[in-house]
């Protein structure tokens, strides 16, 4: 697309050709940057899918892995799938109520100075590296008494908490004051206003935030290395035991010399990736649907 330059007496067009060239170059670079970002995603998804495809079968989720396998018996990662479901599920049960309560406090009760302190604390907590959370829970709970799925859940919950709290604070801030006032003006007490008017209005956004947080921690490896990684091959649903998880399994398999292990790592990675992409897209869809609903259907 090219535009015709204006020409005529009295028009000032100093350096116009050069300026337009610079502009076009910069615009081109911005397009290129976007193309690179998307290409990376494409390449990652493609290579994971392509390499995991051969091992992608029901054995992956139904069969246990075999220690020191010299046989060609089919093996899977059923222990990792079970562990991930248990650990992430419990982490969600821990982080969700805590995160929502923190947000309710910040948004509905806290005086301004305390509000800014708590939001800063949430931001700082969100910035603590996952591996540091891992060794924190290790020092706090694991040293002396050993690993367990529950301790893994706790470390993931710490990662989820600021995420849930932040998104909930954002959504609560979007609930119009007029609604709170309408309820309070009826003589409805504050707690009832919060529980029956404010939170229901925000529930869509909170749900979106939760789905995103679950998608994020389901792929976390670092905090689990120190809290739930020394495991057997048995499929185990008991959170009191150390449980295998998909990310930790991929991490271990990726360092194995056996190409068959790599294939299983790719396949498990593919399943994880599909789950996470699906969850992210669901969250996005929920968010747009919710926004449309809030805008008055």
């Amino acid at each position: 697309m090219s535009t015709q330059d204006l020409t005529g007496p009295g028009l000032r067009l100093d350096h116009l050709p050069r300026r337009k060239r610079v502009n076009r170059t910069m615009e081109g670079l911005a397009w290129l940057a976007a193309a690179i970002a998307i290409a990376i995603l494409g390449v990652v998804v493609y290579s994971v899918g392509q390499r995991g495809w051969s091992e992608l079968n029901l054995n992956l989720i139904t069969k246990q892995p075999i220690n020191f396998s010299l046989t060609n018996a089919p093996q899977g990662l059923s222990n990792a799938f079970a562990g991930t479901i248990v650990i992430v599920g419990i982490a969600m049960l821990m982080a969700l109520p805590a995160g929502i309560l923190v947000a309710v406090y910040v948004n509905e009760f806290a005086p301004a100075p305390i509000r800014s302190v708590i939001t800063l604390v949430i931001d700082v907590l969100a910035g603590v590296p996952a591996i540091v959370i891992g060794i924190f829970v290790f020092v706090l709970l694991v040293v002396g008494s050993g690993q367990s799925g529950l301790k893994g859940s706790f470390s993931l919950a710490i990662l989820m908490l600021p995420f849930v709290a932040r998104t909930t604070i954002e959504v609560l801030a979007l609930v119009p004051n007029a609604l709170r006032e309408a309820s309070l003006a009826l003589g409805v007490p504050r707690w009832r206003t919060t529980l029956s008017i404010v939170l229901p209005r925000a529930i869509g956004g909170i749900l979106t935030g939760t789905v995103l947080a679950v998608a994020r921690v389901a792929g976390e490896t670092a905090p689990l290395l120190f809290t739930s990684s020394v495991v057997g091959v048995q499929t185990d649903w008991n959170p009191a035991h150390a449980l295998q998880t998909i990310p930790v399994a991929i991490f271990e398999l990726s360092e194995s010399p056996d190409p068959k292990d790599h294939a299983r790592a790719w396949a498990a990675g593919f399943v994880l990736l599909i789950f996470i992409l699906f969850a992210s897209l669901t969250a996005r869809w929920l968010a747009t649907r919710n926004a449309r609903k809030l805008a008055g259907r």
């Binding site: 007029a178 006032e181 309820s183 009826l186 003589g187 409805v188 029956s196």
Partner: peptide, 29 residues
């Protein structure tokens, strides 16, 4: 103040119905 508002209701400048049904808007309070 809650008891005060219980006796002294208010209608605001901009209509602010709850995101509930027409019936529940009235019945909820």
């Amino acid at each position: 103040p809650v008891a005060v508002r219980r006796n002294i209701g208010m209608v605001f400048q901009r209509p602010n119905p709850f995101p509930k049904s027409i019936y529940d808007n009235v019945a909820w309070g």
